[in-house]
Design a protein around this nucleic acid. Structure first.
Lengths: 247, 247
DNA sequence: GCTTGACATTGACGCTGCGTCAACTTGTAC
DNA sequence: GTACAAGTTGACGCAGCGTCAATGTCAAGC
């Protein structure tokens, strides 16, 4: 008993295109190919097709299914690997969802200018409340006057410097360097200098406070993240080491 | 002030390839292109790039990002749509995970032959316990004797009939037909006839019990599903309507 | 013997967002 | 003049088929 491709389609719900694809990739060869090129499947092929479909519905890729079919990998191993992959993907999605929710909340909270300001430099106005609360209204006013005195060009330069510093931190972090190493501490030094230029004076407490803010405040995540991998924690460690030895 | 592509790369962490891609698809055009073909970006472009990256990290596609950037869609709408999409995807993943877990458990429980048997026909041995519990040991023995009396060829034919019936249910379900409609009830009639041939006699209770099993038992999902969309519920309704009017 | 219609075949492009060569040209430094 | 870094424009690759397009085959009816 053998079936034409259309009969298989009706029985299995798999499209003929998919069947031809399985044939192309060697996953399911027809039992016989007529002189006219027509594909004919037998019962064994239908059994294999059923298994293929089940594994596909469970999310396995065709190459992996091929390995299972040939016995190269057994069902349990393949399914457990798939389960682990699905769990990872699920967790990633959950984080993604949390990130979108946070962003929506922020955007609706009137902080929609965040991204732009971030790029134009250290957007001190966003942190006005915090700065005044931690270091006094006078400290904020000083920084504000200095900032306003800059030309747009100068502001962008300051911003660019910050971006360079952030990028270098990111490179060091990605390279697996120690936050306390000489290279990273040199970046921290530039970071400190940049802050001093931007804000006038930088106390140890201010510097350490900033370090904590980098980790605690998601608004910084955009600045200290690369392709979704945040390294604010790395920056904090580098800043702490720097403060410990130099301030 | 303008930056070369490498400077943008260092400042943003975005690869030059991505930047050229954004240019190609019209998402982020350089401010200026030199006589040598070199791309040069300005501060505005960097701001746009930052926004693009943020939206990308939140999982939005480039076309959607383009719509947001032109103001065609606002942030809130886009993000909420994205959130909804993520939630759907998350739920799908959870179901996927549950399915894989179930399958692993079954496979380890010694039911690894399920798939094959399914295809060879109504695998009554798998349901032995349930059948005996619900309709008595004698009912099972009768069905078993009948089944064993068949040749492999006959078994396959019976299986093929079941597949055809299942496929027709699937087509009707996908077409949005009413389970109680004439067409669908005709399928239910064939289903009933097939069952009668397979098991001897079919009581109303047996038929309705089977209908419930189709929905409750995931082992049937493979039979009454097409491309991941289960229609066991549809089958149950059709069977109930049939039983109500004919048994 | 011809037409029609259903079913079959083999290409080949499309989708998503870039990564990754490949083959060259430019700019900058020594 | 010669390197070397950085720039450019193609073009393929990926995952799994969906979707034409162009064309051949086969059974049935006139």
């Amino acid at each position: 008993m053998e079936w034409s491709i259309q009969e298989v389609v009706r029985a299995s719900g798999v499209t003929s295109r998919a069947l031809r694809h399985y044939d192309d990739v060697g996953l399911l060869k027809p039992k016989r190919i007529g002189a006219n090129g027509y594909r004919f499947y037998d019962a064994d092929a239908l059994v294999r097709l059923q298994r293929i479909r089940i594994l596909r519905q469970l999310g396995l890729g065709l190459p992996e299914i091929g390995r299972v079919m040939t016995g190269e990998t057994d069902n349990g191993t393949a399914l457990r690997a798939q389960l682990a992959a699905l769990r990872r993907e699920s967790e990633r999605l959950e984080r993604q969802i949390a990130a979108v929710e946070t962003t929506i909340a922020k955007w609706e909270g009137g902080e929609q200018l965040m991204a732009q300001e971030m790029f134009e430099g250290f957007d001190h106005t966003v942190y006005r409340d915090e700065v005044e609360e931690r270091w006094g209204a006078e400290a904020y006013a000083t920084g504000d006057r200095w900032w306003r005195s800059l030309t747009a060009q100068q502001k962008r330069d300051v911003g660019q410097q910050h971006l360079d510093i952030a990028a270098d931190y990111g490179t060091a972090s990605a390279a697996g360097q120690d936050p306390a190493s000489g290279e990273v501490q040199a970046i921290a030094q530039r970071h400190y200098d940049w802050l001093k230029t931007s804000t006038g004076t930088v106390s140890k407490g201010y510097f350490l406070g900033l370090a904590d803010m980098y980790v605690a405040d998601p608004r910084f995540a955009g600045n200290y993240a690369r392709d979704g991998v945040e390294y604010a924690g790395f920056v904090r460690e580098a800043m702490r080491a720097y403060a410990e030895h130099n301030l």
